[in-house]
C-alpha cells in the first residue's frame, strides 16, 4: 500500500526532527555524522600517507607540519587517527544489523513459542552472559584467525546473544495481548503474526537496543585490536594505535590521547543518540520500557 509507506516515511521524518530537537540527540547525531563523514572522505583529506615513516622525527611533538605529532615510527598521528575508525565502523556497521536481526528474530520466536525451547535457549543465554564478553571472542579468533571475514561473523554472533533476551522480553509482553490472540484466531501463519503484529510493537525497543549494541561492539572491536587480534598493522586502527603508543605515553601522550578521544567521541555520540531515540520513541531506559 503506497499510503502506508508514505505514513511510514512521514513517521521517520517526524522521529528525526524529534530526535534532533533534544539536546542529547542533537549532540549525539552531530558526533556520529561527523565520524561517518570523516570515515567516508578521510582518504582524500589526510595530509600524509599513513604508512610513510620518517626515522628522523619519531615521537615528535605537535607542530605546524604534524598537528598531532608523530608516533614511534615517525608516522603522522593525525593521518592515522583520521583513518583509524574506518575498518571499525565498516565491520561493526555491518555486524550490528546482522546481530540485531538474528538475535531479534530468535528472541521474538522464543517469546511467541514459549515452552521448553524457550526455557532451554534462555538458560543457554544466561550461561553465556555469565562469561566475560571478550573471552569467547578470543577463543574463536584463535581458532579461525583474524581478519574481517572472521571478525564480522564472530562479532555478529556474540553480540546477538544479549539481543535475544531483550527481544524476547519485548515480544513476551506483546504476545500476551489480545490482538495477537485475534490474529491467531483468524488463522494467520506464525510468520505473518510476527511480521504484522509483533514486529511493529518491538521495533522501537530493538532500535534503541541496536544503537547501544553498536557502541558496545565498537568497544569490543577496539579491545580486540588493542590485544593484537583485530586490524593487522600497518593499517591504522584506534585500538591498535592506543596499544602501540601507550609504551611511550610519558614521552608522547598525544599518541594515546588522540585515538582515545576519537573512539570516545564516537561512542559517546552513539550513546547520546540512543538515549534521545529512546526518549523520542517514548521508551525511557531509566524507567521500565513501555511499548
Amino acid at each position: 500500500m503506497s499510503a502506508l509507506t508514505a505514513t511510514r516515511r512521514r513517521r521517520a521524518g517526524a522521529l528525526l526532527r524529534d530526535l534532533v530537537a533534544r539536546p542529547s540527540g542533537a549532540i549525539g547525531v552531530a558526533l556520529v555524522v561527523a565520524h561517518a563523514l570523516m570515515a567516508l572522505f578521510s582518504p582524500w583529506l589526510v595530509p600524509y600517507d599513513y604508512k610513510a615513516m620518517e626515522a628522523t622525527i619519531t615521537l615528535a611533538e605537535p607542530s605546524a607540519a604534524h598537528w598531532l605529532g608523530t608516533d614511534h615510527l615517525g608516522r603522522d598521528v593525525l593521518t592515522r587517527v583520521m583513518l583509524g575508525g574506518r575498518e571499525a565502523l565498516v565491520i561493526t556497521g555491518i555486524a550490528t544489523p546482522v546481530a540485531m536481526l538474528w538475535g531479534g528474530l530468535a528472541g521474538i520466536w522464543l517469546g511467541l513459542r514459549g515452552g521448553w525451547p524457550d526455557e532451554v535457549a534462555m538458560r543457554l543465554v544466561d550461561a553465556f552472559l555469565a562469561l566475560p564478553g571478550i573471552l569467547p571472542l578470543l577463543v574463536l579468533i584463535t581458532v579461525f584467525g583474524t581478519g574481517g571475514e572472521v571478525l564480522l561473523p564472530t562479532l555478529a554472533f556474540f553480540f546477538g546473544i544479549p539481543v535475544i533476551r531483550v527481544a524476547r522480553a519485548a515480544a513476551h509482553e506483546v504476545v500476551a495481548r489480545d490482538f495477537v490472540a485475534a490474529a491467531r484466531a483468524r488463522g494467520h501463519a506464525p510468520l505473518d503474526i510476527v511480521r504484522r503484529e509483533i514486529l511493529p510493537n518491538v521495533t522501537d525497543t530493538l532500535l534503541v537496543e541496536g544503537a547501544m549494541r553498536w557502541s558496545w561492539m565498537l568497544l569490543g572491536f577496539s579491545a580486540l585490536s588493542f590485544l593484537g587480534f583485530g586490524v593487522a598493522p600497518p593499517r591504522p586502527d584506534w585500538g591498535l594505535m592506543i596499544s602501540d603508543a601507550r609504551v611511550y605515553m610519558s614521552l608522547a601522550p598525544w599518541g594515546v590521547i588522540a585515538p582515545v578521544l576519537a573512539l570516545s567521541t564516537l561512542i559517546i555520540g552513539i550513546n547520546l543518540t540512543a538515549d534521545a531515540l529512546a526518549g523520542a520513541l517514548g521508551l525511557d531506559r531509566g524507567r521500565k520500557a513501555v511499548i
Binding site: 495481548r177 489480545d178 490472540a181 483468524r186
Partner: peptide, 21 residues
C-alpha cells in the same frame, strides 16, 4: 474481544487492521 485497546494493534491504522482479514 472485551477490550478494544488490547485487541487492536496500536501500531496499525484502521485501514491496515481491516485489511488483514
Amino acid at each position: 474481544f472485551q477490550n478494544p485497546d488490547a485487541s487492536l494493534n496500536p501500531r496499525h491504522t484502521i485501514a491496515e487492521i481491516l485489511a488483514q482479514p
